[in-house]
Nucleic acid binder design. Structure first.
Length: 765
DNA sequence: GGACTGGAGATTTTT
DNA sequence: TCTCCAGTCC
């Protein structure tokens, strides 16, 4: 095999990245610049040209989908030798290490993994057990703090010590502490634990650390901009010995900051590692010229970023169209007609189309319209397969069977199907179990000898027996047969079949689908054990099954679209207050991230991009006035073809005429309407209510007053201001930037923030 | 245990 | 507007 096999048809930068020798390397790969290709070819190059053994390579991704794709592509390049390579998600890699060494942190090797909804349930238990108000200590609030703490490897005691004197946070420390103890008692871990426990093991055990850091001579990380602190530490530990760390990412595509991703990891990579080689991949192989130029224009407004600019050699201009619809129904209708049009005229297929949006709630009208037009679609998001009640029930049974300590799962299924073990009985058992320091199942097993429980002991013991019979079976049967047996002998299937309710038809189908998943697992997986099936189960998501082969239009959020591409992309709801979202706090970080989301959306498109917005939209039952997003005016007018007028005579326009807001007399400017007028946010309808730029529903009069106040006195250094989320603070610096004011504010409680004056909704006080 | 009701809340979610 | 929840009644 000669070198050209790995570098054939590659540009110079790509070749540089693929063939670079030892040391740390940062590959800044713009959207559509062929980064997966570079990554897989670099792996192949290392193995074939540098004689690195595949087992010495660790490649980390964020999704199973990306991992599988990479595995497959490397296999295509070097053959089955690729099998001994560790290619997987951060979580699957850590899980592998954790299973081997979990005894070092007091965890049984049959521990189960709690997903987000299990976590929510367990936290709910903790909050009620501590007699705290779940409105004040909401799941969102608590889970974020706990997740952040785990990301920083901060245990409950340390968290408490750091927040002494703060009543609320001390209570949070109580919750965090109880939650951790419950997890340990149930022999369970949450998603964050998988990473933080692994780091803990590596940091505390030199022999374990030496083993893995010796083993992995080359570490490669995909989507590096999405790593959080713990992932950074993990990568640092594992690559320290050999120093061969190659990370690929794009700071402009960092859209998961709100979930703990720290995109400073990629911005600071060069200072955090020694002698870093940096390669910029800016040549784009995906999008037509107009689309690329639009993307560049939108993203260039961001403040914190590595300066890159995508370019293409392609002559294809592509199309970039906008459409302003009367309301969301007309918007959906426009999209449907465009799809039909392109299929007819350009011989495109349904699978070539994607409709993207900022909020899942926008999908409904789109769905309705596609459905009634007979356009097949595939929707992502919403209730996920593995989060459906019936599936969670089966999983709960399987978990109790594999790990009888799992009280959370046991409580879920002990009385489903009905066994006459209701809440009162269960509370009795729990109380006894706590007193005897046993698990619920243990207590149930001996309930005959406990006076307080003896009345119903036969029911309890029968349940225990059923679990243990199944437990014995699990070791002897193929997984799919075993799953069938569980569904059968526990009576789950019967419960749904016999209920006679129509809505249970879907549940029954889902249960069958679950069995198919087990069959599929047996076919695909090397390790076909029950344990392996359960591991796999905990880390799979619906996204893994995403493929555009089935002739259907794809509907998904902008977030889920990252990493995908489509010949035709529609982005719906490109309006102020929807995108960027009005409830943002106005910080530079959030606004930048929102803009990156727009950039991600635009760069999904290959040939045709349609950006649509509405004049009114019904949000939570209230019809609200909307205006075009600022992102639209960031795109040079000459790139855009506005189709708003073209469709005036279409019948859908008549059909929805009745819903035209009475105040709406906006002249239909030819060309690009939002370029002509001043800021769209200054357009004030005579309607009673509207959405203000910053998202509150306000009275028009109040709105006018607010605007006056802002224009009357601009913010100055030294001003004391109030922010609805951060509280009171003092302006320390004012930066003027093309009309917008960037304020650096020291808040009393929230610390220093940089906010955009136009968004932050600040009140001078 | 199930049916009913009133009230609050309603981003984005790779694992 | 819709959906999810806790609380109430039978």
């Amino acid at each position: 095999m000669n070198k050209s096999v790995f570098t054939e048809n590659m540009n110079n930068k790509q070749v540089e990245a693929i063939t670079y020798g030892d040391g740390a390397m940062l590959i800044l790969a713009g959207a559509g610049s062929g980064k997966t290709r570079v990554l897989t070819h670099r792996i192949a190059f290392l193995i074939k040209k540098k004689s690195v053994h595949p087992s010495e390579i660790l490649a980390l991704t964020f999704t199973n989908k990306a991992a599988n794709e990479m595995k497959e592509r490397v296999e295509n390049l070097i053959g089955p030798a690729a099998n001994t390579m560790w290619i997987g998600t951060f979580h699957s890699m850590c899980l592998r290490i954790l299973r081997t060494h979990c005894d070092k942190i007091g965890l049984g090797s049959n521990f189960v993994i709690y997903d987000t909804s299990d976590q929510k349930e367990l936290l709910g238990d903790c909050i009620s057990e501590l007699n705290l108000d779940d409105k004040i200590y909401s799941y969102q609030y608590i889970s974020k703090i706990i997740s952040n703490s785990k990301d920083k490897s901060m245990d409950p005691e340390t968290f408490r010590a750091l927040n002494l004197g703060n009543h609320k946070l001390e209570k949070v420390a109580d919750i965090y502490d109880l939650y951790s103890r419950k997890l340990l008692k149930n022999n369970a871990v949450d998603f964050d634990d998988i990473l933080s426990f692994t780091v803990k093991i590596l940091e505390k055990n030199k022999s374990v650390k030496d083993f893995y850091s010796d083993k992995f001579k080359y570490v490669l990380v995909d989507e590096y901009q999405d790593t959080n602190n713990i992932q950074y530490r993990l990568v640092k530990i594992l690559s320290k010995k050999h120093g061969n760390l190659c990370v690929v990412g794009d700071d402009d595509q960092s859209i998961y900051g709100w979930r703990g991703a720290n995109f400073e990891n990629i911005l600071n990579f060069e200072s955090q590692f020694k002698q870093v080689k940096t390669v910029f991949l800016e040549q784009n192989y995906r999008s037509a010229k107009k689309i690329l130029e639009a993307a560049n224009n939108v993203i260039s407004k961001n403040i914190l970023r590595k300066n890159k600019k995508l370019w293409t050699e392609s002559d294809n201009e592509g199309t970039l169209c906008t459409f302003t619809a009367r309301n969301e129904y007309a918007e959906a209708q426009f999209i449907v007609e465009k799809i039909k049009d392109l299929i007819k005229k350009d011989k495109m297929e349904y699978k070539d189309f994607a409709i993207l949006y900022r909020l899942n709630s926008l999908s409904r009208v789109l769905e309705d319209t596609l459905l009634s037009a007979g356009v097949p679609y595939k929707l992502f998001g919403g209730l996920k397969f593995y989060e459906r009640k019936e599936i969670k029930d089966i999983i709960a049974y399987l978990r109790v069977i594999i790990n009888p300590d799992d009280n959370l799962s046991l409580k879920r299924i002990v009385n489903f199907p009905r066994r006459g073990i209701g809440n009162i009985s269960l509370a009795d058992i729990e109380r006894q179990a706590a007193m005897r320091d046993e698990t619920i199942l243990e207590t149930m097993a001996v309930s005959g000898s406990i006076p307080e429980l003896s009345k119903n002991a036969s029911k309890y013991e029968k349940f225990v027996e059923m679990i243990f019979v199944l437990r014995a079976d699990s070791a002897e049967m193929p997984v799919s047969k075993f799953v069938e047996k569980v569904i059968d002998s526990t009576g789950i299937m019967d419960a749904y079949v016999n209920s006679g309710k129509i809505e249970n038809k879907a549940r029954i189908d889902n249960i069958k689908e679950f069995v198919s998943a087990a069959v599929e697992f047996e076919k695909q997986s090397e390790d076909k054990s029950f344990e392996s099936f359960m591991n796999n189960l905990a880390l799979v998501t619906d996204l893994d099954s995403l493929d555009s082969e089935e002739g259907a239009v794809t509907l998904m959020t902008l977030h889920s679209s990252k990493g995908l591409e489509f010949p035709v992309v529609f982005i719906a709801g490109v309006e102020n207050s929807t995108f960027p979202m009005s409830r943002l706090d106005g910080s530079v970080e959030e606004l930048d991230e929102e803009r990156r989301l727009c950039y991600v959306g635009i760069t999904r498109a290959k040939n045709h991009l349609y950006l649509t917005c509405t004049k009114t939209r019904t949000v939570y039952g209230k019809t609200v006035v909307t205006g075009p997003s600022e992102y639209l005016s960031d795109i040079p007018a000459e790139l855009i073809e506005d189709l708003s007028n073209e469709h005036l005579g279409a019948d859908y326009d008549k059909r929805y005429q009745g819903s035209e807001a009475h105040w709406d007399k906006t002249p239909k400017n030819p060309g690009s309407p939002w370029h002509a007028s001043a800021s769209p946010r200054t357009h004030i309808p005579k309607d009673k209510t509207m959405f203000e730029g910053t998202g509150r529903i306000v009275n028009s009069v109040e709105q006018l007053n607010n605007m006056k106040k802002v224009s009357d006195d601009a913010f100055e250094t030294g001003n004391k201001v109030e922010h609805r989320k951060f509280g009171i603070g003092v302006i320390e610096k004012v930066f003027k930037d093309s009309g917008d004011e960037l304020l650096e504010i020291q808040f009393d409680k929230a610390g220093k923030k940089r906010l955009m004056a136009a968004y932050a909704n600040l009140k001078k006080i």
